[in-house]
Nucleic acid binder design. Sequence first.
DNA 1: GAATTCCCCTG
DNA 2: CAGGTGATATTG
Length: 449
Amino acid sequence: MTDNFLYQQARLSRDPRFDGSFYVAVKTTKIFCRPICPATLPLEKNVEYFVMAQQAMQQGYRPCLRCRPDSAPSSNAWQGIATTVKRASRLLHDYHELSISEIAKKLGIGERYFRQLFKDQLGVSPKQFQLFDQILFAKHLLHQSNLSIEQVAQSSGFNNARRLQIQMKKVTGLSPSQVRQQQHHIEQDIQLSMAFRPPYNWPHLRDFLALRAVPNIEQIEHDSYARTFILGNCKGWFQARYDGHKNHFKLHIKLNDIRYLTKVLRNIERVLDVAADIQGIQQQLSLSGIPLEQLTEGLRLPGIWEPFEAGCRAILGQQISVKAAINLVSQLVDELGEKTDETNYFPSPERVATSDLLFLKIAASRRQTLVAFTTFCLQHPNASIDDWLSIKGIGPWTVAYAKLRGSSSPDIWLDTDLVIKNQLDKFSINAEYARPWRSYLTLQLWNLA
DNA sequence: GAATTCCCCTG
DNA sequence: CAGGTGATATTG
């Protein structure tokens, strides 16, 4: 299989996970693009692939004006709309006293477009976003300072105490003085829909997650998945309700720092794997030799909220059954999870590091691995999952599993997995032909077991 | 919501 | 290169 063939698969799917790894040049127009470019897909006979943008430039190609392949990855131009939304939420947070139209002016875009774009991307209007942020700031002042209510109102961008009172009641149901007295936990309930590209095999994803659900963290119903999460300094909860007719999830999100909304949405997209082009992926999988009638329609990669959690689950799951593993994870959560207001969260590395983990009835060496892993995560917060290989007790299987579930890498082939090995004996499969979607092949084979 | 801009295909 | 098509991003 040639590299070109892999590039072709990747570009046809427009999967963002391949963004930045190569560029597509169109011979007929002498323009080159990123694999995610929204423009009409060029015919294969007209394209040529490059690993670096400069190579394309040298061959006389001009960068596309839509996807800006000439800009540096993760630069402002590269992120396109995302940058505008990011700047917008930053401005809304920094300038509570500015009106929406003044913010739009600062952004250099029309007010109408600002509203539309913001609501479209975040499911919350700029005004709601700003109001909730103001309320949180006011609450902070009420608790942490002895400013008068009038002063708090002024500082948080409300013109007077009356205005603060009205808005605070609207968001929290309480007056400012009540908020000051009680240690009340404020959360905004955000609702929006998140589209996916059909087919989407919801029962499979649901059952997969249900089998591995950690009590008090995750809740699963016949048509919904919910869990608590921590992202940076933000704590929250989300529930995704599947709607197969409208091809979307109905999302409920609660969080205590609205500035994280974008990141939270990105991660939910990943956990539910809504962006994958399943149709194209399945075509690719059929080339590997897996019998077509055995291929389950619409299988997605069930994600874990973040790599650290995936790592803990993987380590505690080494060599034992799923059920036994979840028991251990559950003990870890009960013992060390961060509990606030009846709600439990998966423990951070910091919290795991405070414990000797003796409450886990596992082999000492396994416990050692978990300690070493946690320490590693604390010391190298920006390390990639591949770097975990240097930790004693973490081998290729654990790393691969964590990448598949914790970062939703599309091309992880778990050929060291026992279940997969058994399946390979049953069918004559050449996984090479499933590239770059071998994670999906792994899922398919697990599903058949 | 129409109009414009951009990209790609075909002849 | 001209003329036609689909798909954004953005404005009025």
